[in-house]
């Protein structure tokens, strides 16, 4: 605001001059402060460290200070969007369940078809007799047979080095040399960690897979199986492995090369996979 000094009384003029004298320093300081605030670069420079400090503090203490609030917001959001989430996930889950059930039905149908075909077979009569003698339902015996173990993969591995002598499998899988090495490393680790004298790791369970290992002096045989495995199944597998060892593993192997790999892979395939 500008003041026309000519229109002021003498008293007002004096008052104005006194104001000027008394407020001179304050006005200069105010002007300086205004300049500093209006200079964006200088203002940023001054304020940035405080903001950064506050952000750091927030980062460090966010869970303590806001955990409850965020959880509450999230919970509320989740509850209010429940139907949307269900709509979003239902098709995928539905497809998964449908696939699983249809697979199970397929396998059940296949099993029942086989059982119907074999109604008057020797096996069927054997089940009927077993059922009468042992008091186990015939249906249980049939189900037990349907879930019988299947050998998916078999590895013949040099015991300490973990080098592969041979392998056979029902499907294509990852690098078998690395699988053999890792199996051996896991065996070594477990056997060292628990230091149970001469005991060996003989089974690993992973999801629907069971890896059964039978150890010999210089090599071991690992079989990856699916299905359920009873004590008598284990015994049957053990006998099969022993018969393989007896038949094919008489000679000692020093260097492992591709001829050895091919030869033993053929034996394994013939004995365990394409029997």
């Amino acid at each position: 605001m500008t003041i026309d000094e000519n229109k002021l009384s003498e008293e007002d003029l004096h008052l104005l001059k006194i104001k000027e004298i008394l407020l001179k320093e304050d006005r200069a300081e105010l002007s300086n402060l205004r300049n500093r605030l209006e200079d964006e670069e200088a203002f940023n420079k001054r304020i940035t460290p405080y903001i950064e400090q506050h952000i750091d503090h927030l980062k460090m203490n966010f869970p303590d200070q806001y955990n409850e609030m965020v959880s509450k917001i999230f919970e509320e959001k989740l509850m209010s969007s429940r139907q949307d989430i269900i709509d979003l996930l239902a098709p995928s889950i539905g497809i998964m369940i449908k696939k699983f059930i249809s697979l199970q039905f397929e396998s059940l149908k296949e099993g029942i078809d086989n059982q119907v075909k074999n109604t008057f077979s020797a096996k069927s009569w054997s089940n009927k007799f077993k059922s009468i003698f042992y008091g186990v339902k015939e249906s249980d015996l049939i189900l037990q047979e349907m879930d019988k173990y299947q050998i998916q993969e078999v590895y013949l591995i040099q015991r300490h080095s973990g080098l592969l002598f041979g392998s056979a499998s029902k499907s294509v899988n990852l690098d078998k040399d690395v699988i053999a090495g890792m199996l051996t490393a896991i065996k070594s680790f477990a056997e060292d960690a628990f230091q149970q004298g001469e005991q060996d790791l003989d089974m690993i369970e992973y999801g629907t897979y069971k890896i059964v290992m039978q150890n010999f002096k210089t090599y071991y045989i690992a079989l990856a199986l699916t299905g359920s495995l009873s004590a008598s199944d284990k015994n049957q597998i053990s006998n099969s492995v022993l018969s393989f060892a007896d038949r094919y593993l008489g000679k000692s192997i020093t260097d492992i090369d591709e001829n050895i790999l091919k030869e033993y892979s053929n034996y394994l395939d013939k004995h365990f996979i394409n029997t």
Binding site: S167, S169, K170, N173, L261, N274
Partner: peptide, 11 residues
């Protein structure tokens, strides 16, 4: 059945 084989005689 798959075998992990290639040409030559690799040690």
């Amino acid at each position: 059945t798959e075998y992990n084989l290639s040409q030559g005689n690799m040690i």
